[in-house]
Structures are given as structure tokens and as C-alpha cells.
Design a binder for these strands. Sequence first.
DNA 1: ACTGTTATCCGAAACGTTTCGGATGAATGA
DNA 2: TCATTCATCCGAAACGTTTCGGATAACAGT
Lengths: 333, 333
Amino acid sequence: MPPNITLKHLASQLGLSVTTVSRALGGFEDVSVATRERVQAFANEVGYQPNQSARRLKTGRTSSVGYIMNGAQGDFRDQFNTRLLVALGQALHDAAPEHDLIVTTVPEDRDELDTYKRFIDGGKVDSFVVARTRIQDPRVDFLLESGFPFVTHGRTGRADEHAWVDTNATDGFVRATRYLIDSGHRDILFLNFFSDLYTAVEREKGYHDAMQAAELTPMSRHCQHGYASAYQAACEALSSATPPTAFVCASDIFAYAVMEAATESGRVPGKDLAIIGADNLPAQMYRQPSLSTLEVSFESVSQALIELVLAPAGGTPRHRCFDYELLLRDTTG
Amino acid sequence: MPPNITLKHLASQLGLSVTTVSRALGGFEDVSVATRERVQAFANEVGYQPNQSARRLKTGRTSSVGYIMNGAQGDFRDQFNTRLLVALGQALHDAAPEHDLIVTTVPEDRDELDTYKRFIDGGKVDSFVVARTRIQDPRVDFLLESGFPFVTHGRTGRADEHAWVDTNATDGFVRATRYLIDSGHRDILFLNFFSDLYTAVEREKGYHDAMQAAELTPMSRHCQHGYASAYQAACEALSSATPPTAFVCASDIFAYAVMEAATESGRVPGKDLAIIGADNLPAQMYRQPSLSTLEVSFESVSQALIELVLAPAGGTPRHRCFDYELLLRDTTG
DNA sequence: ACTGTTATCCGAAACGTTTCGGATGAATGA
DNA sequence: TCATTCATCCGAAACGTTTCGGATAACAGT
């Protein structure tokens, strides 16, 4: 409502030039301590807020991070993206309060790179967080080619060329699988994503490694994201001639689908059938029996992502890798 | 990587002035059809993207909508906010592809208005979507006082002074409660939020109205957000001298807590105990027995929010109200 | 031939900030 | 005393866009 207060106003009120006010607020050394403090105090008092557009126009930096979600890739079908988004916002606020997170959704795959392009060329953001990386990831290819700063959540086939933060899925699934083996299970089925997500391959590898180390034959099935596909796969497996006695699932959703299929076939999860899920659902969503799962802190991951995305570009790309924690609850007896 | 392409480049390539190029792209009438098309074709070909910062600086409009989430208010404890956020992003993309959604989280209550102020004065957005309204809502007071455009999801005590979109919670809970009454239940407990959310009052009213219309005595309990508090309340109620035979819950989370408490006390939900929840969890999260619930489309609500938030200010505030759909599944027999 | 109208284009200012290259005056060195 | 340095400050240009107020030329009416 009141006309926004600008540097010019401050300058005239203080009897200084716009330049000096700007440099005082910027904390530069070539303005005396006395005036610097006077300016800062006054700016604070009247609640001066620098106009972002002007600053951006001049500096070319936008103080904002882009996060683009893709409907076609199933980004909305589970809670992963939204949890990451919220944690990212929080981490960004903590690390750099004056920065913004700009979120956009893109309905179709073919628009995805256009959206990145639009954001870059339009000067909307000065870096991206790219989630749900695939092995061959066109977004990564595009961003690498354009030289625009970004950090991924999840590795890719070109992981040495860009900054990334990831969870050590191979290790996590090795431990989950080994736990089941050590508990005496021999027929352990792995329910994985049907996708080229990098983490899907990592998960598969962890399961395979553990099974082969124990000289057991790996059996894995791939499902679409979502409950229904996993439910069907679980039903089929459980009604087969040699049903598995344990399931390792790439997501908690899958695990819940297995629980339902198990219950309907008269099995009691945790007693007749062991189930381990992974990292989708917030802790408060527990149901009875509670699900054993692999968990990683979204907060830590997000903090690392923000740290890397705010870091000045140049030098060799940096990486952070977090370990899963194996939470043993009811469904593993 | 390549120096960004500007109006000046277009102009010199085309042998026109910057003014004409700008007006051609803007679709103005005072540039000949021939040149207008020539300019647009060329801009398209080279992939010109107007610099947002410059445009914003000049016009004062930002083409972006702000959405501020508050950690202290429990905005992250359930899926409501994230679902709304995702649907909002989608709706904004559909309605106005060149607009952005700017998301920020604020950790403490006392920072909340500061964040709004920072966004307004810094020229970051030109309108807000305010969710989870309370009856006495300081955000609404602040925005009304500052004259800044916004639309709320949920009414407030000053609902006639601002644009809002809401779900008709009173009507929904009347119907849910009446359904249970019509099914023969007499002892129906209402598990409501312990808060001053506007919708909490609406829900309570719906339950009360239905109970009193049937000459039954309303019994409601208020819980903190989240599973634990509702679980405890349900346990206490079920072990009382005259336990309820049906629960109406203000959220699906509460309903799931009731289901757990019921199962532990040896009751079978849907058989010994009827339960109706409301609007928190995506459909794929069903568990067995599946939960009867009140549902409203987040997509429709978000589309309405975006429509109102993009509408030019001025005139009397506009409103949209959506009805709940009562989904009868297993937990109501 | 003169005026008025219309269609089409353009110069220049402005938005609020940052920053380069000085300008001013006082203090310092000889 | 004069040149040098230093600490402070400032003018002006620039970022890329929009928009106001013309400018130009062609064309119509008389």
C-alpha cells in the first residue's frame, strides 16, 4: 500500500548518496563505520527491503533455486517428492534465508526440458535441484551441456561430471537382505520399481549381491509405481508353487501392498512372512503390524543438497552419500 | 553458456528498434501484421526468453504466486499441505504457464508475518495463497491491512473481506454423521482437531447439527494433530463404561488411529465399530479394511484458488465452495 | 496544394540496484 | 611546503524491459 521504500528514499533521508547507502548495506569497507551503522540502523528501522528484481537484473544472480517436478514420471504418486520439497524449503530457509525455492510442475515429459530452458533463459533461477535421477537422464545431459549449475538427488551415468547427493542404496539393500538371510529365510523376493531410476539399479544390486554372497538365487519382480501393481505381483508370488517367505521392497508402498496380499492369503506379516520396505512414508503413518524399513533422513539429505547447490560453481563436482538405517519393527518378527 | 539473447539482439538482427520488437512480441496493434509475424517467428526460432527480472522491475508485476508454509502450525505433519502444494503447482502451470509458484517455509510462528512482509516489500510475488486458515488469522489481518492481494483456502472470521475457496465441511460432516445415525448408531464420538482452524469449527458444527437433529447428545474430543494423540483418545473412549459404536474423525490420520485402537481392543472396524475419516490421504494408501471418508478434489480446489488468485484485484471478493463426497467403504460396514 | 487522418515505427526515459572510476579533503611523509 | 597516500564519499552508467510521446510517410478529402 505505501509506495515501496527504495535506496533513493534512504539516501535522501540520510543525506547520503545512493551509492554510499548501497555500499553501507552491502557491508563494504570503503564506507566509514559510523555511517555504515547509521545506514543499517535506519534501513532496519524503516524496514527497507531491497527490490529483488532490480538486484537480479543488475547482478544476474537470482538468489533462487529451481525444483521441477514431472507428472509423467510419477512424481506425485508417492510422497517422495513432496517430502523432499518440504525439507528442501526448510533447509534453504535455514542456510540462506534470503533465497527462494521456485517450484514448478510439468505435466508431460516432452515439456520437461523446455521448462528447464525457460527457467534458464528467463533468468528465473541460478541453479537447480534435480531429483529422481535416471541412469540416462536427459535433464542431466541438457544441464551439463548448457553449463548451468545444478545438483542431483541420486547419481546418474555421468555422476563424476556433476554434483550429487545420494543415499547408499546398494549398501542398504545388502544389509536388509542379509538380515533376512541371517534370520533363516531362503526364498526372498525383491519387489523393485519398473524403471530406469538410478536408485532402482542400486537397490537391485544390493539385493543381488547379498543373495549371491549367500549362494541363494535372486528372484526379483518389477512393478510400476503405486500400490496396485505391487499388490498384484505379491498375490501372484504368494499363490505360486514355491511362495517366498520374505519380501524386500523398493518402497514402503510396495511393502504395504505385500502386507495386504499376505493378510488376504491368510499369512500374518512378521510371523509367516517377513517384509522390509524403504523410505517413503513418514513415521506417523505406521500401521499394525508396523513395517520394518530402510530409512534415511530427508533433512540431512536436503541440507546437503542445499549446501552443494549454494556452493560456488567451479572445481571438481562435489558429492555426499548417506547411509540407510535399517529399522527393524514388527514385519521382521 | 551463450550470452543470453535480449530484445536488443533481436532488434539489430531484424533491423528494427527495440521498441517495435517489444511491441510486436506483446501483440500490440500499432505494429504491422507482417513485421509482427516476422518478429514472432524469429524470436521463436532463436528461442528468445524475456528476462523476468527486467520485466518485473519495469512493470512491478512479478508473475509469481507465494505460498508460505509454517512448521510451527504443523503444516508438515500431515499430507494436506504437500498435496495442496503439488496441486497448486499443477493448476498454475495449466492456467498460466509463465507464472511461478514460490514456496517458502518458516520455522517459527513469530517469523511468519515477517516472511510475508519480506515477500511483499522485496517484490517477490504479487499475490499469496494462504492455507489452513484460522478463525482469527493474523496472516489475513496483516494482508488485509497491507492491501496485498491474496486468496485463502478456508474461510476466516473476516471471510467477506477477502477471496476464499473452501470445502463445505459443515455439510460434509452433517452427512457423515447422519449416515451413521441412519445406520442405527446412537453413541457416535467425534474426534476433532484441537485448534482454532476454521474448518475445525465447521466440522464440529456439522457433527453437532446432525446429532441434535436426531435428538442425540453430541460427544466430541479434541486432539493435537498427529497419530499419537488420537490413538490415546480412542483407547480411552473405547475402554470407558459406555463406549461409542461409531467414530467421526476430522482427519484420516485420526481415523487410522481409531482403527488401531479398535483392533487392539478386539473390535473389527466396519463390523463392531463404524469409522469415517476425512480428506488427508491419497487413495492409494488404503489399508484393509478400507476407510470410509469424506473426500474433496484437491485439483478442483487448487484450480479455483489459482483462478481467484490470478483474477484482477478490485470489486467484491469472490468465493468458491466445494462439497465433500462421502465415500462409503469397509469401515462403515 | 493544403490539411487531417491513419498506419507504422522509433527515441528516450524510467524501474531500483550495483559498481567503476573518480573526487574531495585530511593526514602523512619528505 | 609540496607531493603522496588514505579514508570516505559520490556521479554516472549499466542491466533488459516497457511505455510515453512523438516522428515519418502515405493517403484521403477538400
